[in-house]
Design a protein around this nucleic acid. Sequence first.
DNA 1: TTTGCGAATGATAATCGTTCTCATTTGTAT
DNA 2: ATACAAATGAGAACGATTATCATTCGCAAA
Lengths: 141, 141
Amino acid sequence: MHQPEHLKKAGLKSTLPRLKVLDLFENSEERHLSAEDVYKQLLNSGEDVGLATVYRVLTQFEQAGLLVKHHFEGGKSVFELNQGKHHDHIVCLQCDHVEEFYDAAIETRQEKVAAKLGFAIREHSLHIYADCTKKKCPHKP
Amino acid sequence: MHQPEHLKKAGLKSTLPRLKVLDLFENSEERHLSAEDVYKQLLNSGEDVGLATVYRVLTQFEQAGLLVKHHFEGGKSVFELNQGKHHDHIVCLQCDHVEEFYDAAIETRQEKVAAKLGFAIREHSLHIYADCTKKKCPHKP
DNA sequence: TTTGCGAATGATAATCGTTCTCATTTGTAT
DNA sequence: ATACAAATGAGAACGATTATCATTCGCAAA
């Protein structure tokens, strides 16, 4: 058990719901989870949490820097563990899988463009929606 | 009056609400308008349109290729006139103003990255949220 | 340990942006 | 002019998220 320290360090009491949510993100194979995803998975695991609590905990974790939030098309927000290193996302239009990538050239170009326009980048998001060209892509039912 | 032809060409009857909305986009100084923006501006101009109609018309215009839709942080969608040339957006965190830019290097890097990962880009969005470093930035009240 | 208090929770209502429903009105081909 | 399908507007319905509020919990002090 080491999660309690994570929460302590973030200034958050180590409560049952918070530990469960953190555990989910650390042990789920899917890195990117929506509030609804988290809620359903906890219910399926027999945990008794409220949806409101899930939203609250996710927001707190985001503010504490434990999670990062992303808005993709379709209105839903997804969260993922914050691993310090920024990356962008490519969303498969066939299976909805989210892949991560990082390209230094893109990053530096962004800085250059923003500076030229008189802006200091606070955050940014690059989302690519694409067709999978591999055959192994597991299509949605 | 030339808008009716635009609509005709798009396979849309030229009705009052559609003409008003199209006119708004062509004559408003703000290129990026949300459904709510359009609705309020039409009401202020004394027009009698329903919010549902605004949403419908915007969606139709998007499908017809007259408008392009963007999702920024905060849940709202904004539309802008489609001028054929793709561009990305930088959003000022002080005044919410949206500036457009295009960087060929970024575009080609994206293609390269996607190809390497086995994807064919269908669409993409790069949103930069930044602090304005100019003094002329009109801050929000 | 037990106790006490403020923070956290869960159920539910409320909100926000958006879409749907349906009776009425409008555009347009005849 | 007429007729009929398409478009509209008012409001209900919707999905995602946030706020409310009484109850419960974590934890620190006694």
